[in-house]
Amino acid sequence: MISRISHQLRRVAAASAYAVLFAGSAMAADTLSIAATPVPHAEILEFIKPQLAKEGVDLKIKVFTDYVQPAVQVNEKHLDGNFFLHQPYLNEFKKSHQNDLEVPVAKVHVEPFAAYSSKYKKIADIPAGATVAIPNDPSNSGRALLLLAKQGLLKLKDPSNISATKKDIIDNPKNLKFKELEAATLPRVLNQVDLALINTNYAIEAKLNPVKDSLFIEDANSPYANLLVAREDNKNSPAFKKLIAALNSPEVKKFIEEKYKGAVVPAF
């Protein structure tokens, strides 16, 4: 009888030890908190989240609707990384903000920048004195001016300068009037202006198809690949390496191509 009880106690102890070990291993999963804008960034992260969970990475996706806080939160170490910006934006952001920790670790996709109009169907129809809404952050305002210049709507001192400003315009034959606004608000003012140059993530959120609905769009050679960004102190962590591999996988490439149908293009 004593022997039987002793055996049962050993079994209970072993089961308890296994439970503790299992719980410990479950709690040992690496957690990564990544800032992203809703479309397509958060959608892409949601797609790879189940696979990362199988690999021991608990991916926390923090969604932001602006372009400032995702960078600030990572630099202040409130979050591990972000996925929403391109290199020209990061360069300009570091000039205007205290930001010395963020480093790009992977190119993921390109969102071809495009111009939209609810009033005109052709570039030739844009009238003299037209009001053109563009993003107010330096890298994307420069991007907008480059695209307008490529369509012959204005001329810049240096047509390859991605940091061009309105001061760099040397010829404005249609006397275009510029309205610089926060990028996220541009779809909402589309019917109030003659032309709006809108970042693709915000265009998609507003149910605009950059391929079908735009008046003109960047070509595939755009230098504005969207990046996964880490901090200097965590860029080589095993969890980040798994995240990079997942974002640059054939599965994600297929997901981007099938879901966004040219509005978002893989950059790997």
Rank of each mutant, 00 (worst) to 15 (best):
K155Y: 00
V72L: 15
A53S: 12
Y67V: 11
E232I: 14
L227I: 10
F113W: 09
D58I: 01
R188E: 14
S139P: 06
P187D: 08
S118I: 04
E102C: 09
S96L: 11
F178V: 09
S139N: 05
V265A: 05
E251M: 08
A114M: 03
L148D: 00
K150I: 09
L45W: 05
K242H: 08
A133K: 00
R188G: 14
V68E: 14
G142D: 10
A14T: 10
E257M: 13
N172Y: 02
H86F: 12
S118T: 10
H86W: 09
T200M: 08
A225N: 12
D58G: 01
S3T: 09
V63H: 05
I48Q: 04
Q51S: 12
S33H: 05
T200Y: 10
A245C: 07
K157H: 08
D58P: 01
K167E: 15
Y202L: 03
P40F: 06
I256N: 00
A14C: 10
S96V: 12
E218N: 00
N99T: 11
E46S: 15
S163L: 12
G81F: 01
L197D: 02
A14I: 07
E257N: 10
K95E: 11
P223A: 06
L228N: 09
Q8L: 15
Y120S: 07
T185S: 15
F84V: 08
P250W: 07
N175K: 15
G262W: 07
Y67L: 14
L247Q: 05
L227H: 11
T37R: 09
A15P: 02
A267N: 04
I169F: 02
N236F: 07
P238N: 10
K157T: 15
S33C: 03
L156H: 09
K107F: 11
I244S: 01
K150A: 14
L154K: 12
L32Q: 04
Q98V: 04
N175E: 15
V193L: 01
